Simulated scan of single mutants.
Amino acid sequence: MNTESRQVNLDWIPASGFQLRKAGVQFDAVRVDGEDGRRLADFIEELTDGEPGPIVIESSGWRSVYFLVPAGSTSHRHWPRGTIRLNAGPCHVSYVPVPALHGLTWPLAWRVPPTPDSRFVHPVLLNKAACALLE
């Protein structure tokens, strides 16, 4: 394995600040607001020994938590009350805020940054954890 294969694909991560990314291209996201989102992030980190996949947190407003999952994995699945699916489909587009890995990104930050293996949060595990905590 060479060092190139260990690098994070940074094409969708901005160099500075933060940007909105169209869901359904590189990833979908599941948003959970407030303390419920933070409890779910704690739970999914515990279930995965601290390696759940990329999670973005917001420090103001709704204090949202964004769980980045593989593109196309949020549809055709029941999600509990309190979750918001950010994906794309016919006549529907969602955007996900993505912070840079370093520098000033307030009000967004990486709770868990992307990894070199480009693994996302496992959608079935996230769904089961959300159902256990939020229903």
Score class of each variant (00 low, 15 high):
Glu4Ser: 11
Leu47Tyr: 06
Arg85Trp: 05
Val96Arg: 04
Ile13Cys: 03
Gly24Arg: 08
Phe18Ile: 12
Thr115Tyr: 07
Lys22Tyr: 08
Ala130Ser: 04
Leu68Phe: 01
Val121Asn: 08
Ile44Asp: 00
Ser59Leu: 05
Thr74Asn: 03
Val96Tyr: 06
Ala129His: 01
Phe120Glu: 08
Ala15Ile: 08
Asp28Thr: 15
Arg111Ser: 06
Gln7Asn: 10
Cys91Gln: 09
Pro113Thr: 03
Asp42Asn: 06
Ala129Lys: 01
Leu47Ala: 15
Arg111Leu: 15
Ala15His: 09
Asp11Ala: 05
Ala109His: 13
Thr115Ser: 15
Leu134Val: 01
Leu47Pro: 07
Leu133Ser: 05
Cys131Leu: 08
Ile13Glu: 06
Asp33Asn: 02
Ser59Gln: 06
Val32Ile: 15
His92Val: 13
Pro70Ala: 11
Arg119Lys: 14
Thr74His: 04
Leu86Trp: 07
Arg38Cys: 04
Glu4Lys: 05
Asp28Glu: 14
Trp110Asp: 04
Asp36Gln: 11
Ile55Gln: 00
Glu45Cys: 12
Arg6Trp: 04
Ser59Lys: 04
Pro123Gly: 12
Leu104Gln: 15
Ala130Thr: 02
Val8Pro: 01
Pro114Glu: 03
Gly72Cys: 09
Ala132Met: 06
His78Arg: 13
Asp49Ser: 14
Trp110Gln: 10
Arg85Met: 11
Pro113Cys: 03
Gly50Val: 03
His92Asp: 12
Gly37Gln: 03
Gly61Asp: 02
Ser118Gly: 14
Arg85His: 05
Val112Gly: 00
Cys131Val: 06
Pro116Tyr: 10
Thr48Trp: 07
Gln19Leu: 12
Ala15Tyr: 00
Asn9Tyr: 13
Ile84Pro: 00
Phe120Gly: 06
Val30Trp: 08
Leu40Glu: 08
His102Gly: 11
Val25Phe: 13
Ser75Cys: 01
Val25Asp: 15
Gly82His: 01
Trp106Phe: 15
Leu126Glu: 12
Ala29Arg: 13
Val25Thr: 14
Ala71Asp: 14
Val56Tyr: 02
Ser5Ala: 13
Leu125Ser: 11
His102Ala: 15
His78Tyr: 07
Val30Pro: 12
Leu47Thr: 05
Met1Thr: 09
Val98Asn: 14
Val25Trp: 12
